[in-house]
Design a protein around this nucleic acid. Structure first.
Lengths: 338, 338
DNA sequence: CTGAAAGCGCTAACAG
DNA sequence: CTGTTAGCGCTTTCAG
């Protein structure tokens, strides 16, 4: 078995001091060109790679970023993660990723461990439990230790840090407006995210769009993926609708399924719109009209902001970046002829 | 802003030596019960959390595991990751996750960085490019440095390390046998994974099942997600089939879509089976019969094996763990009456 | 231009 | 039972 080569090893090999080697590798102007060259060459030969831990211990930065996401099975978060990974690596940072699984306890635990490993910044999207309980001590804590924090998508106004979100309000507003525009008169709003910041904003967007036209009263179904089928069934038997706006990809699919089992054809009898523009939406039958959440962009923005904060010397007020959504129209909606 | 409390801080606070504090916190028997108590208490008060980097530098283990997966958008890998996360945390380990994006270069780079941060072990599923080119120097390299390596799902027999896979052969064999059993006579095999170890094993399983019954010749469609529609279209126009076995979830969905646009109804005209048991399969219409890959189990097994290897003092020969699959029957297959 | 030395936070001999 | 010391691999004054 080979042992990892250290600065010391290459110093001994070259009969130089370890600090000379260190400086040579860092391209310090204190070192002569010739020795730089020979040092760099043997470093390459010996496959030297600096020990990130030692360096981190010394420099107080580890070049790793901590991210915690609520759920990896959601296409949205998976895509965000891809955007983050790319942006981080582009800047020489590594990511250590935790999944909170929508649990407050798990979120706290993740934050703790990220502090333990001395990440340079933390990027987080809140667990739904956290957003429900509004318990945010653990978040303030990490701010307190002066670790840059940026929240994305599921954010809390109670925590004073940078954040990046999509324009959930406008996304829902536009989607609802579109449904009205194509002739829908009875538009319901179905949410599995009612306890979540984004769920609330989308609801308001929906409500305001309805009110703006003054054409109809709102119909709101708050449920969860597990109860969706039952809740929607009873809703349908009591309400005549011609469109449903749902708050995420899975909900849209589930909704379309229970509509179908109720003999309601999409989009002939009712139009459906979802959020998140993933494979599921794109390849379902019929393909589903969605408001695109720009996941990768959001991921890379969040990382950029985190890195800016790391490198910032003067403090600045927290700000929020808002990304506009885009309605991608597919076959789960249709224009109704009058 | 608060500063993180160190051993030194609590030592000074208590007028003790820093090593006494260290030992007290570690419950060393060298330390008296009373001082242990007082040390632990003030540690809690001061919110002491050991610096993982310093500890790692000293102890040569970081309690972090590196994992690299080819693609996070695949339900399968996302689920594996969940299983890994849980098992790792249960054992006090953290995960740093890289996405190779099916690229050999990215895979190499990820491995390098994982070495840099001194992960205690690496768990990897190979990029398809790696499996195609069979370039494995980078993997041997990490073995060479005596870092435990375990491969899962997409493995290479050229690398001498532990691995965990599902029984791809039997999964495909059983799925094919099932199709024959319900009366299908012309079963095609459609693969977007032809260059991949698992794709090859599934193909063999399919072929052997067909041969075992001696009933029909094999029909193989090697394609990619991007060309699937076109390739399947031309295939259909030249071949009469009543069933298709596909190698992953997305392929199954795409296949069902192009069948539908060709006027072929699933499962009435042709039965379809996929791999991976995710939301897409479960909630598509019709819901799709799949061979379940036991993703979470695979993830937790891989982590367990990695940890065992970390703690092993005597070397042992590499071994392979094989997890059996399970055919979950849904509505994309139907029994044909004679 | 090169080297010696200190120190990041922690652990572990080794003394006392 | 408690403290002193050395050292993990690296960076960075400060001397030579």
């Amino acid at each position: 078995m080979a042992t990892k080569t250290t600065l010391k090893a290459i110093a001994e090999y070259l009969n130089l001091s370890i600090s000379t080697v260190s400086k040579a590798l860092a391209d310090s102007k204190e070192i002569s060109e010739p020795t730089k060259i020979v040092v760099k060459n043997t470093a390459r030969q010996l496959k030297y790679r600096p020990n990130a831990m030692a360096r981190g211990l010394k420099n107080n930065h580890t070049m790793t970023l901590g991210v915690v996401i609520p759920n990896i099975l959601h296409t949205f978060f998976a895509k965000v993660l891809m955007g983050m990974e790319e942006e981080a690596h582009k800047n020489g940072y590594n990511l250590v990723t935790c999944i909170s699984n929508e649990s407050l306890a798990k979120e706290k635990q993740s934050l703790n461990m990220l502090c333990d490993v001395s990440v340079d910044a933390i990027i987080i999207s809140l667990a739904s439990e956290t957003q429900q309980t509004e318990e945010i001590e653990h978040l303030k804590n990490i701010l307190h230790y002066d670790i840059p924090l940026v929240m994305f998508d599921r954010v809390s106004s109670l925590v004073d840090c940078d954040s990046v979100v999509i324009n959930d309000y406008k996304g829902a507003f536009d989607a609802t407006s579109y449904l009205m525009e194509i002739g829908c008169k009875n538009i319901a709003f179905l949410s599995c995210l009612s306890k979540t910041s984004v769920g609330k904003k989308r609801l308001t967007g929906y409500e305001d769009a309805i009110k703006a036209k003054g054409s109809s009263t709102t119909k709101i179904i708050n449920t969860s993926l597990n109860n969706l089928d039952a809740d929607l069934n009873t809703f349908i038997s009591n309400n005549a609708i011609d469109a449903i706006l749902t708050t995420d990809e899975s909900s849209a699919i589930y909704t379309m399924n229970t509509l179908r089992t109720n003999g309601l054809e999409v989009p002939h009898d009712v139009s459906v719109i979802g959020f998140t523009d993933g494979n599921l939406a794109r390849n379902y039958f019929p393909s589903v009209t969605t408001v695109n959440q720009q996941a990768e962009i959001m991921g890379s923005k969040a990382i950029k902001i985190a890195i800016e904060n790391i490198n910032r010397t003067v403090t600045k007020a927290a700000s929020q970046e808002i990304i506009e959504t885009e309605l991608v129209i597919r076959n789960s909606t249709r224009r109704i002829n009058f």
